[in-house]
Amino acid sequence: MTYGDRLRRWVVVRLLPKMQRVDVARFYHCSDAEGYVQVLRQLDPEHQYEVMFDPGEPEGDRSEE
Rank of each mutant, 00 (worst) to 15 (best):
G56R: 01
L43Y: 08
R41K: 15
P45D: 03
F53R: 03
S31Q: 12
E64N: 11
H47Q: 10
L7H: 10
D54F: 06
V51G: 02
D23H: 10
P17K: 08
G4M: 13
Q48C: 13
P17C: 01
H47A: 09
V11I: 10
T2D: 11
V39T: 14
D61N: 12
M1V: 09
M19C: 07
E34L: 12
G56I: 03
V24T: 04
E57K: 09
A33F: 02
S63H: 09
H29Y: 12
L40K: 09
V37T: 04
M1H: 09
E57R: 07
W10N: 04
P45A: 02
K18E: 14
H29E: 15
E50P: 02
K18S: 11
S63D: 10
L15Q: 07
R41Q: 13
R14S: 07
E65H: 08
V51H: 03
V24F: 02
V11D: 02
E34S: 10
Q38H: 12
R14P: 02
L16F: 01
W10K: 03
M52Q: 15
V22K: 12
F27Q: 04
Y28L: 15
L40D: 03
D44V: 11
D54K: 00
A25M: 07
W10P: 03
V37Y: 05
H29D: 15
Q48Y: 08
L16H: 07
P17W: 01
M52F: 04
E65M: 06
Y49W: 05
G35W: 03
E34H: 01
V24N: 01
R26N: 03
Y49C: 00
Y28C: 07
M1S: 12
V22A: 12
D61Q: 08
Y49T: 02
Y49E: 04
P17L: 04
D44L: 10
R6S: 11
M1D: 09
Y28A: 10
M1N: 09
H47K: 10
L15G: 01
R8C: 08
E59F: 07
R9L: 07
W10L: 05
D5T: 11
E57L: 11
F53A: 02
V37G: 00
D5L: 13
C30T: 07
V22T: 08
R21I: 06
P17Y: 00
M1Q: 06
W10M: 02
V11C: 01
H29M: 14
R6H: 07
R26T: 08
R26P: 00
V13M: 07
Q48R: 14
E46R: 15
Y28F: 13
V24M: 10
Y28M: 14
P45V: 01
T2M: 04
P58D: 13
T2R: 05
D5W: 07
Q48S: 14
Q42M: 09
E59N: 06
E34K: 08
Y3D: 14
M1A: 11
E50C: 11
D61C: 09
D61Y: 06
Q42R: 12
D61L: 11
L7F: 06
A33K: 03
F53V: 05
E46V: 05
E59K: 08
V51E: 00
M19S: 09
E59L: 10
E65G: 08
G60E: 14
T2E: 11
R26L: 05
S31D: 13
L43H: 08
Y3V: 10
H47L: 06
R21A: 13
M52A: 13
R9P: 00
E46H: 12
R6I: 04
T2N: 13
P45T: 04
L15I: 09
L15H: 04
R26F: 03
